[in-house]
Simulated assay, not measured.
Amino acid sequence: MRKSFFIHLGIPALIGHTFDPYITGVAIIGINSGAYIAEIVRGGVNSIDKGQMEAGRSLGLNSRQTMRYIIWPQALKVMIPPFGNQFVISLKDTSLLSSIAVAELMYSGRQYMTITFSAFETMFMVCIFYLIITIPASLLLRYLERRIDKS
């Protein structure tokens, strides 16, 4: 949360220009997720045995062709489950954006709850909305995992 305050309040104070909270929110989630996704990709590529590169080279492929046709297809099989986990984590992290006044799902639910005084019903609907977002994503990822496992 301190990062979001720094990016939303600190950087504009340094450069003398303010940003829309939504732009700041996208930047915060993007920077945070980008670091994890880079590690997922690095780990996926590093998980492939070095002999695969040598095998591609022995077949007469250059490094780019070897990466495209041999390394990346194998690495994608390893990377899909962590990508799905990172998507869900990033979705949950959006609730932290309410600290910089971005009206995301949880923030809107809290505002509605203060108006109607119906805490259980409001939070139940927020949970339902999160499920509506995450269940199709997890089903899509499961489909992709199965499809890649068959090939």
Rank of each mutant, 00 (worst) to 15 (best):
130 Y>W: 09
87 F>W: 13
29 I>N: 06
129 F>Q: 02
3 K>Q: 07
114 T>C: 01
84 G>Q: 02
85 N>F: 05
67 M>V: 03
108 S>M: 09
61 L>F: 15
103 A>C: 04
69 Y>W: 10
130 Y>Q: 06
35 A>L: 15
149 D>G: 05
127 C>M: 15
137 A>Q: 09
35 A>W: 14
13 A>F: 03
43 G>L: 12
13 A>G: 00
36 Y>G: 08
114 T>D: 13
7 I>W: 07
4 S>L: 09
50 K>C: 05
133 I>F: 14
109 G>W: 01
135 I>H: 03
58 S>K: 05
140 L>N: 00
68 R>S: 08
41 V>E: 13
97 L>D: 04
122 T>A: 07
133 I>D: 04
68 R>N: 08
76 L>P: 00
147 R>F: 01
70 I>V: 13
74 Q>E: 03
150 K>W: 04
7 I>L: 13
51 G>A: 14
96 L>V: 08
65 Q>K: 13
2 R>T: 13
65 Q>V: 04
16 G>R: 04
85 N>L: 08
120 F>D: 01
7 I>Q: 02
127 C>D: 02
116 T>I: 06
51 G>P: 08
16 G>S: 07
136 P>Y: 07
41 V>Q: 12
102 V>G: 01
37 I>K: 09
49 D>F: 09
72 W>I: 15
116 T>A: 11
34 G>N: 06
108 S>F: 01
99 S>Y: 15
76 L>V: 14
141 L>N: 07
86 Q>V: 01
41 V>L: 15
49 D>P: 10
42 R>A: 14
150 K>S: 13
135 I>L: 14
87 F>M: 14
36 Y>N: 14
90 S>N: 05
135 I>K: 04
131 L>S: 10
40 I>A: 12
3 K>L: 11
30 G>V: 03
86 Q>N: 11
133 I>L: 15
111 Q>S: 11
151 S>N: 11
7 I>H: 03
138 S>I: 09
44 G>W: 06
87 F>D: 07
57 R>L: 14
76 L>R: 07
104 E>G: 10
8 H>P: 00
126 V>S: 01
25 G>M: 06
86 Q>F: 00
106 M>E: 05
128 I>H: 02
37 I>C: 13
128 I>M: 09
114 T>I: 08
124 F>R: 02
23 I>S: 02
103 A>W: 03
41 V>R: 13
79 M>E: 03
137 A>H: 08
24 T>W: 00
137 A>E: 08
20 D>W: 02
144 L>T: 14
13 A>W: 01
132 I>T: 03
81 P>A: 06
38 A>L: 13
103 A>N: 10
99 S>N: 07
50 K>S: 14
22 Y>I: 14
89 I>Q: 11
113 M>K: 01
94 T>R: 07
45 V>F: 14
29 I>W: 04
121 E>S: 10
47 S>G: 14
107 Y>H: 15
42 R>F: 11
72 W>R: 05
19 F>L: 09
19 F>V: 03
44 G>N: 10
42 R>Y: 13
18 T>G: 04
130 Y>A: 08
74 Q>A: 04
14 L>Y: 03
30 G>F: 09
100 I>S: 10
68 R>V: 02
95 S>M: 05
44 G>V: 11
87 F>T: 12
145 E>C: 04
